[in-house]
Amino acid sequence: MDLSRIIKRLVLTAFVFFGAATLNFFLPRFSGGDPIAERLAQLGDSGGTMSADALSAMIASYNERFGLDLPIWEQYLNYLWDMMRLDFGYSIAYFPTRVWTLIGQALPWTIGLMITTTLIAFLAGSFLGAFAVWRKNAMTGTLMPLMMVFAAVPFYLVGLLLIFFLGYQLRWFPTGGGFSPLVLPSWELDFAFNVLYHACLPAASIVLSSIGIWALAMRGMMVTVAGQDYMTFARARGLSDRRMFFSYGIRNAILPQVTTLGLALGQVVTGAILVEIVFSYPGLGNLLLQAVRGADYFTVYGIVMILVLTICFVTLVLDLIYPLLDPRVRQGAP
């Protein structure tokens, strides 16, 4: 197989990781922010009784604890080593809690929401796009421009509209949260339904605004595929319409879509961040918002690193499975 492609991808991943870690390390130090001093000053302000001496003593002790009194290159090496072990340290806002614990709580929500919605949008969108080429009629003719509009609008704005109309005006769906406030998380069926019910609007906003992207791209591919000689030949052989549509049309047109799927999975993460914020969904996006608001730098960087790694990983996996989908790549044909 194409080993050099995989090696190139691995090196690229390492570069991205290294670059992100370096950026995370140096930015706050050059921008003049001092997370610990800021945080303690905030606490001091709200507590009201802390003297300046006590504050600076505390800053010194915290700096020592976080290793911030070491020379900068030593800090940098320590930081890189921590990042390689995926050790993001402690959250500043919820001090004794480690960043990983916070991320661990939020991650399942984000992954669940994201993967489901991306797959739904991918499958439905690709099918609709292909179908719009196969059967040109009034329905597909009005559907496509509508999808173009939705495709242009970011997820979270569709989310805001859905909250407004379905959540606030009609009161059909809850306007936010991952589950009802008075329900305790458990593995009961009731709770599962509660979670699904709360996921309806966020999921709908992601699906609605990304389905059009898939449909439009698929339509472009399908137009090309439908004009190919092998399609004419397949028709001449008397294959059923259904078989031509699925095995000849979609099978060939979907390949570039799969590449885009990898890119999109990465992008959906960031799109989902804002959707989660809009719906105060208990995933990474909301955690990120809280961390940004609370100047909790370590958590912000931890989340960014996790997302960056996810994207790199997904791209890598797609590079690996792509040859399985497209025989032309497998055989090394141009």
Binding site: L12, T13, F15, V16, G19, A20, L23, N24, L27, P28, S31, G33, G266, Q267, V269, T270, I273, L288, V292, A295, Y297, V300, Y301, V304, L307, V308, I311, C312, T315
Partner: peptide, 18 residues
Amino acid sequence: VLLTVPAILILVVIAASI
């Protein structure tokens, strides 16, 4: 390298720092 990471993630780090 830069295109692998969505811009908004990098921008969040930059904007959060300043």
